[in-house]
Design a protein around this nucleic acid. Structure first.
Length: 581
RNA sequence: GCCCCCUUGGCCUAAUGGACAAGGCGUCGGACUUCUAAUCCGAAGAUUGCGGGUUCGAGUCCCGCAGGGGGUGCCA
């Protein structure tokens, strides 16, 4: 149930009536008519822009349209008043009963309140993390992991059929480097002194892989050339790294539906098939690219390559798909991978990448546009970097990972719930400061705490109610006399709760899960404010001694707050706490 | 050079094209015989980087400029 959508329907119906009455001309486009909460509560509960949007096409003054529309709307029992304001806004006030019934809906629906069928069961593929299998995940990956996972949940909650997917980059040169690094650890495990030169991975996390290889193989590879051991070690090492990564993700609470291996595209004709598809559309050719201007590489020389005509689909230059040695560029398998996604029948694709992949956006969109003939939209969300702080100072750590702070380090220090919430306290394209002290602080400064505290307070009320012998399970609360909730302070909180379904749809439409985190912070704020007003006005306390009926109505409100907080935290992948300790 | 992102009170941020730009931090002043004051209330503080444009209406969309970041053929 989305009250704003309901009232918008009412507005549209009233406009249709006005057309039938001859008060408005026929054939108006109502698509831009909105009903939304006004920024200033003094303007009422909801505002519609109908009169202003329709003024020009109807060749009428906005205020004239607003006047007649106001009369129509005021006929509806839900509408207490409809006033024309400003340039032609129509401000609506709704009957208290409408708001009170929102609570009944929340208690009846539980955390499904806000769930929407907006997505129409559309199949959406969300690809995220997709880190190279060369080591443990670091903080940057953590942000992408949390963002992607929350976005996937959000889309699921809003009625999409979501697949969570991880693309394993196990086909390029970096897995050879990984295998060579493991070979060194293998020699080390057999007692040799080794040096980690430039171009190898020196992280401690490969020690145990080397030891395992030494145990399994003995010394048969000592002194042998790469051709003997490289292929097998590549396999062993990437498997080990993926085990590591899966465990890292699990520690964060992320579970993928699909792990898609880049390697599986090689030697199976899939890359060739994808490029053949582009070729059949006249988008593959042999040609020479111009050198990049301004910053020409020293070793530049013109070279004929196999190119994808991505400029036909919005890119700035055409992109090579083959290296001069005849191997594919990294782009080619990625085209094939996205071709595979399109072939699997997804209606929409989303890639979550680090901001350093920004240069990749246009060509990938061009590829998907070409492969799907413009039918499958690809949205690429770039996550900006995370800066770590401790004691107010930039913070670096390399417990076991080499030269970066790992996802494990973060989760071990602050836990998955805090990690997840904090990663969503900024829009994806804004930089994020992550301060190990602040995120554990118990104060309003820390949104995680603030929201959790609100939830814990509700739980506390429920415990107190039980102690006082007041029945307060959801069924009882759902049938409480909600008309007793008529104080302005209480209605303010209810109105915030009523925004939840609308917020979900906005967040899902824009692929912006951070909106959920911000909403929860605001809702928690409204709740804390109401709670504290009980200090001065005892009538606003949730438990009213000796008055079970009133108590139940007020507890119903508190409970509804906890339900919506639970629903929101659920989308973010955060567990609501029962009490603060 | 070209492409992408960013620029909002002293600091960090928010805002499906809607009304007087919303929070937090910091500053100043208040509220605990209570369901947890781990919270709340109030005050001061902004020409949304600059200049144009579209629109009834622009922080938001378009063009130009400046500053910061990222990217820019055989790394992924």
């Amino acid at each position: 149930m989305n009250l704003f959508a309901d009232i918008r329907t009412l507005v549209l119906d009233s406009l249709t009536d006005l057309v039938a009455d001859g008060a408005l001309p026929d054939g108006l486009n109502m698509a831009n008519v909105t009903v939304e909460p006004p920024r200033d509560a003094a303007h009422g509960d909801m505002a519609t822009n109908a009169a202003m949007v329709l003024a020009k096409p109807a060749k009428m003054k906005p205020r004239d349209i607003a006047e007649v529309l106001a009369v129509k709307l005021a006929n509806d029992p839900r509408v207490v008043s409809a006033e024309v304001a400003g340039p032609g806004f129509l401000n609506l006030r709704l009957d208290a009963g409408v708001w009170q019934s929102v609570l009944a809906t929340i208690l009846a629906s539980g955390t499904d309140y806000g769930r929407s069928d907006m997505g129409n069961g559309q199949k959406v593929n969300v690809e995220y993390v997709s880190a190279n299998p060369t080591g443990p995940l670091h903080v940057g990956h953590t942000r992408g992991a949390v963002f992607g996972d929350a976005l996937a949940s959000l889309l699921d909650y809003s009625g999409h059929d979501v697949t969570r997917e991880y693309y394993i980059n196990d086909g390029g040169g970096q897995v050879d480097t990984l295998a060579r690094s493991v070979y060194l650890r293998y020699l080390e495990a057999l007692g040799q002194d080794v040096a980690f030169e430039e171009g190898t991975y020196p992280g401690d996390y490969l020690i145990e892989v080397g030891e395992a290889v030494a145990k399994a193989k003995g010394d048969i590879w000592v002194g042998q050339s790469e051709s003997v051991w490289l292929a097998e070690l590549r396999e062993t090492s990437t498997d080990a790294m993926m085990d590591l990564i899966r465990a890292d993700l699990l520690a964060l609470g992320v579970k993928m539906d699909v792990f898609f291996s880049e390697k599986s595209l090689y030697g199976t004709g899939l890359i060739e098939a994808a490029l053949a598809d582009l070729d059949s559309k006249g988008l593959i050719y042999e040609g020479v690219l111009p050198p990049p201007k301004g910053k020409e590489p020293d070793d530049w020389e013109p070279r004929e390559q196999t190119l994808f005509k991505s400029t036909e689909h919005g890119d700035d230059v055409d992109r090579p798909v083959k290296k001069s040695d005849g191997n594919w560029t990294y782009f080619a398998p990625d085209v094939a991978y996205h071709f595979d996604k399109v072939s699997r029948g997804f209606d929409a694709l989303i890639d979550v990448l680090g901001a350093d992949h920004g240069g990749y956006v246009k060509r990938m969109k061009a590829a998907v546009s070409a492969l799907s003939e413009g039918k499958v939209p690809l949205d690429i969300k770039l996550c900006q970097l995370v800066r770590l702080y401790k004691d107010g100072q930039p913070f670096k750590m390399s417990k076991r990972s080499g030269d970066f702070v790992s996802l494990r380090d973060v989760v071990d220090l602050v836990g998955p719930d805090v990690t997840r919430f904090v990663m969503l306290t900024r829009k994806n394209d804004a930089k994020l400061d992550f301060d190990f002290d602040k995120v554990l602080e118990q104060s309003r400064e820390n949104p995680v705490f603030y929201v959790q505290y609100a939830h814990a307070r509700v739980m506390s009320v429920l415990r107190k109610a039980a102690d006082a012998g007041i029945a307060s399970d959801d069924v009882v609360l759902g049938s409480a006399d909600l008309a007793l909730l008529n104080h302005e302070a209480e209605l303010t909180v209810i109105k915030k709760l009523a925004e939840w379904p609308r917020l979900v749809e906005t967040a899902a439409r824009t692929n912006e899960p951070h909106r959920v985190a911000f909403y929860l912070y605001e809702l928690a704020g409204e709740f804390h404010a109401l709670w504290n007003r009980g200090n001065e006005l005892t009538q606003l306390r949730f438990i009213q001694d000796g008055d079970a009926a009133t108590s139940q109505a007020k507890i119903a409100l508190a409970r509804a707050v906890s339900v919506v907080i639970s629903a929101g935290l659920g989308i973010l992948g955060v567990t609501p706490v029962q009490e603060m300790r």
